[in-house]
């Protein structure tokens, strides 16, 4: 059900939410968190809502969408409430702000936060300079940005690093969880040797590749190279050099990964690029500080970048295997 409340107030929105609950049974009971989405008005807002609806199937939540409209209009708030089939397992309140109100999103959100439940803020598009100091970000226990959605992903990642505060996280980090899982599982198996060095290859515009390199650097404390393979395609390969030969996880087509280890048959695994909704679901699963992410960010400067000469590295990797 969709209820439109044009030119309204937050108090009226609240009244309508309670009324909907009384009319339609327990709609908002059992909600575990409030998810605030800060976005510009338009197609991006709908995409974000769709991802949030999908995530709400695991984490029933109240979704508050702050859609920033034209700044030069008269101050106005248009609200739309979606419940039931139109909102997954959540209730969605889309609030379009105009005029001066655009800069006061936090004030609009405060009356609508669920009592006692944690607040998560997500910026699907441009990130604020310091999420933890942003007025809406300050309300939240968890602040989700997306380095890949910035005009310059690498600068977005650098900003995430310099502004890191406990509770920050980035979708570029959740995008590589499957890679991390597979690499970890590969090291679980004998021979239990130290890793001597590592190389991560991926698109120039893939902050996830950078983060993967940073993570390996922070965990293994060995030289890690970040090799650029041109734009597009995300992460394409990881090589962990060990005495007995390299462990390689290669995904050239963005779909199927191949795990190669010395003395063992090649193993294939479905390794698709993750959807935003899956990443978001993962992000909502935990609301405490992610120290591992922090360490990966901090290790970024210690990762050696290499561009044109990446052939040499793959060659030496091949040499070690033979």
């Amino acid at each position: 059900m969709i209820v439109d409340l044009p030119s309204t107030t937050t108090a009226a929105v609240n009244r309508e939410l309670i009324e909907l609950r009384e009319r339609g049974g327990a709609v908002a009971l059992g909600r575990v968190l409030t998810l605030v989405i800060v976005t510009d008005d338009g197609a991006q807002a709908e995409e974000a809502i769709e991802a949030a609806n999908a995530a709400s199937r695991e984490h029933p939540c109240r979704v508050l969408v702050l859609a920033r409209g034209a700044r030069r209009a008269a101050p106005r708030l248009d609200a739309q409430i979606r419940v039931g089939g139109d909102a997954g397992a959540s209730e969605v309140v889309v609030m379009r702000m105009y005029g001066q109100l655009v800069d006061h999103g936090a004030s609009v959100v405060v009356p609508l936060l669920l009592p006692d439940a944690p607040v998560v803020t997500w910026w699907p598009g441009p990130r604020p300079k310091v999420p933890a100091e942003d007025p809406v970000g300050r309300l939240a226990q968890r602040r989700i940005t997306d380095a890949a959605a910035q005009r310059s992903p690498s600068r977005g990642l650098a900003a995430a690093r310099s502004s890191y505060t406990e509770g920050d996280t980035d979708l570029a980090w959740s995008r590589l969880t499957l890679w991390r899982g597979l690499l970890t599982a590969a090291l679980d198996q004998p021979p239990h040797e130290d890793v001597d060095s590592a190389a991560v290859t991926g698109a120039t515009d893939s902050p996830s590749t950078d983060l993967l390199a940073g993570w390996l650097r922070s965990r293994l404390d060995v030289p890690v190279r970040r090799i650029r393979s041109g734009p597009g395609g995300g992460i394409t390969s990881v090589v962990l050099e060990r005495h007995s030969g390299p462990i390689e996880l290669v995904r050239p087509d963005g779909k199927v990964g191949t795990l190669t280890q010395p003395g063992q048959p090649d193993r294939k695994v479905a390794l698709q690029r993750r959807h935003v909704r899956d990443c978001l679901t993962e992000e909502l699963r935990r609301l405490d500080a992610d120290e591992i992410y922090q360490a990966a960010l901090q290790a970024l400067p210690a990762v050696r970048a290499s561009g044109a000469n990446h052939r040499k590295v793959t060659d030496s990797a091949q040499g070690a295997r033979s």
Binding site: S174, T177, L178, R180, G181, L182, L183, T184, A185, L187, D188, P190, P191, H192, E193, D194, V195, D196, L216, R219, L220, D221, R242, H243, S244, E282, R285, R286, D290, E291, I292
Partner: peptide
């Protein structure tokens, strides 16, 4: 330096109890 270690003394450097996202594959 690279002698493989016995399974009991081996600790996977990529694992960390604080890393709660990491799936157990």
């Amino acid at each position: 330096w690279h002698r493989p270690r016995a399974a009991e003394t081996w600790r996977n450097p990529l694992r960390d109890p604080r890393d709660k996202r990491l799936p157990h594959i």
